[in-house]
Write a protein that binds this DNA or RNA. Structure first.
Lengths: 246, 246
DNA sequence: CGTCATCTTGAGGAGTGTCAATAACTGTGG
DNA sequence: CCACAGTTATTGACACTCCTCAAGATGACG
């Protein structure tokens, strides 16, 4: 029980708050355990809570009338759920949330968030930062989808994975299924599979769920240099710092 | 001069502030006039200001290495520029901004925004609301692009146009070029032109820049019913309220 | 009236989704 | 421990949509 709250405590929305304040805030939260494939809520449900992921992986997805589903986000501990919905004044959920593996979240009433953003200026600012970042990422993603090839999309995604999960690019195991990754990238699994061949030209090899990113320069020249973010790409900067200079 | 500030005054970021407070805030702003096709800033420029559009139309765009440009937003009076960039802690502009027609903006130093979000809780909250909304819209757009046909995308866009510009759907003139619209929708002009034929099946006719949306039920059945937002679509609700019940 | 940008239309090709069949993997219960 | 079911992954064939290149047509404007 305690561990879960500790994870939530380090969520960026509490940045700049004192330990005492965090503890006060967290005691209003309710721990919820989710089994693999269990839904936290469904698209259309009434929107009553704000969540912080404590453990596991939560998939945020939307299913359209054809039964096709698209993954909007793959969330990990310290990430928050529904912040933007709540401030965009929705009364029902705009998407569904399901546990990819056994997971834990901490749940707060919608009002808790609204009141505490007023009470603690820091929380409002932290949320602003986090939502602004998400908004920027959404726009960048839209553009990636429009201007980059599928192989480039996947290569970019794999680099992000290494950073987020602290994986060694020279050899790591995918943290979740290719199906989920494809859905996150907005492509079909078949296309994903087929693109793996082309990925080898970039020095990226995938055998089953085992991935090897061979040459950083190749990937940089073929992928990052074609991205409109270019120099300002925080991902690229972090990646170089972490894996090339060490 | 005064008129321009009056427009900015009604920007949603000032919601809930007193007239006196707004006036105080606005006096720090500098009016800037832009001629048609004049750039406000370029992608890569250092990020120093926050802007509110006072008159005209501002195109937010990004150009990638191939020389291809994508329009991220088309902004009109009361809209803000760079709020999300500033809170995502960028130090250079992630996109360019150019005047589509003769326009006016009011400009504030970056610090002005940061300090006043701390000073006025309302501004932080309003920005939160506005950025949360933009973030949601970006995700919805990404999904539209993935799941809807080009004809449906255009039809949806035209409906939005009617609402934003208060145009009569039964006969109106496009407020800007098809080239700009195509770029905003992430398609080529040629594809746009060709799709106009298919649009007639939905009861949408376009001759030059003259548009007629004939039948609301047809468009609703063919476009909105296939959208994943469905019932919760604020656009659709507003549209029905405004044009079908009057 | 001529110039320039915008728009339309045509032909060809690249890339992705769809349907279908097969293979590899996961987990469950006997 | 194995057999089985269900999911996930790979591969092939085909159709469709959109982009690209190219040429003309229309429109705006000095």
């Amino acid at each position: 029980m305690i561990n879960y709250k500790q994870n939530a405590e380090y969520s960026s929305i509490f940045n700049g708050l004192k330990k005492q304040e965090k503890d006060d805030l967290l005691k209003d939260g309710k721990i919820r355990h989710l089994n693999k494939k269990e839904f936290l809520f469904y698209h259309g449900d009434s929107l009553t809570c704000f969540y912080i992921v404590c453990s596991g992986v939560i998939q945020i997805l939307r299913t359209n009338s054809d039964g096709h589903e698209k993954t909007l986000h793959i969330l990990i501990p310290k990430d928050t759920i529904c912040g933007d919905e709540i401030f965009d004044s929705h009364i029902t959920h705009q998407f569904s949330a399901v546990a990819v593996e056994n997971s834990t979240v901490i749940e707060f009433p919608k009002k808790w968030l609204q009141e505490n953003t007023k009470k603690y200026g820091n929380i409002a600012l932290n949320l602003l930062t986090s939502i602004a970042h998400r908004s920027q990422m959404a726009e960048i993603e839209a553009e990636h989808k429009a201007t980059m090839s599928t192989a480039q999309l996947i290569a970019c995604f794999l680099q992000k994975l290494c950073l987020v999960y602290n994986l060694n690019p020279h050899g790591f195991t995918l943290p979740y299924s290719k199906k989920l990754i494809a859905s996150r990238l907005g492509i079909e699994v078949e296309t994903f599979s087929r693109t793996l061949l082309k990925l080898q030209e970039y020095g990226v090899f995938m055998k089953g769920s085992r991935v090897t990113i061979g040459n950083f320069n190749t990937i940089e020249k073929n992928v990052c240099d074609h991205c409109s973010i270019e120099q300002d790409c925080k991902l690229r900067a972090s990646f170089k710092k972490k894996f090339e200079l060490n």
